[in-house]
Computed example of a mutant assay.
Amino acid sequence: MKEVDWRKEIELFIEKKAREVEVSKTLDTIDKALSEVEISREPAWQTIRESRDGS
């Protein structure tokens, strides 16, 4: 199968797999960080307003 550039195909496969692994690790890190964040019971707009007003 000389019409296939196997080197290029393998490089593309490796690059794609590396990106998938990197994205997966990043998402795991985000999930872990978010699991440690306490859920606020007050609306976001209220928190923002208080922050802006310095209250």
Rank of each mutant, 00 (worst) to 15 (best):
L12P: 00
K16S: 12
W45C: 02
F13H: 06
D53P: 01
S55L: 15
V21M: 09
E50P: 00
F13C: 10
A44I: 12
K17V: 15
W45T: 05
G54R: 02
E20C: 02
R19V: 03
L27R: 15
T47C: 01
K25H: 13
E20P: 00
T26S: 13
E11F: 02
V23I: 15
T47R: 14
S24L: 12
V37G: 01
I39N: 06
E22A: 14
E50D: 15
S40I: 01
T29G: 07
R41V: 04
E42Q: 12
M1G: 15
M1F: 11
V23H: 05
R7I: 08
F13N: 03
E22F: 03
T47A: 13
S35M: 08
R52T: 08
R7A: 14
I30M: 11
P43Q: 04
S24I: 04
W6E: 05
I30W: 03
V23F: 04
A44Y: 09
I14W: 01
R41S: 13
P43E: 04
E42K: 11
T29D: 12
D53T: 09
M1P: 01
S35H: 07
E36C: 03
W6Y: 09
V37A: 03
D28S: 14
E22S: 11
T29W: 06
K2P: 02
S40K: 05
R41L: 09
V4W: 02
I10C: 01
V23P: 01
D53C: 02
K17R: 15
E9D: 05
P43L: 04
R41K: 14
F13Y: 12
V4N: 06
D28Q: 12
V4Y: 05
M1C: 08
W6N: 03
E50A: 09
R41T: 11
R19A: 10
R19F: 05
I30L: 15
E15H: 06
W6K: 08
V37D: 02
E42S: 13
Q46D: 09
S55Q: 11
E38Q: 14
V21K: 10
S35R: 10
A44P: 00
E11H: 04
V4F: 06
V23R: 12
E36N: 14
V37Q: 03
K2H: 11
R19C: 01
E20N: 07
W6F: 13
K25P: 00
D31L: 12
E38W: 01
E11N: 12
K17H: 14
E3N: 11
P43A: 07
R7L: 11
E9S: 07
V21W: 02
D28F: 05
E42I: 14
K16W: 04
E42C: 02
A18Y: 06
T29Y: 09
L34A: 04
K17D: 10
F13S: 09
E50C: 02
I48Y: 04
A44K: 06
K8G: 00
V37C: 05
K8Q: 13
T26Q: 14
K17G: 03
Q46N: 08
L27A: 06
E15K: 15
K25A: 14
D28H: 06
E38A: 14
A18G: 02
E3Y: 10
S51E: 13
I39W: 03
I48D: 01
L27M: 15
M1N: 10
T47F: 03
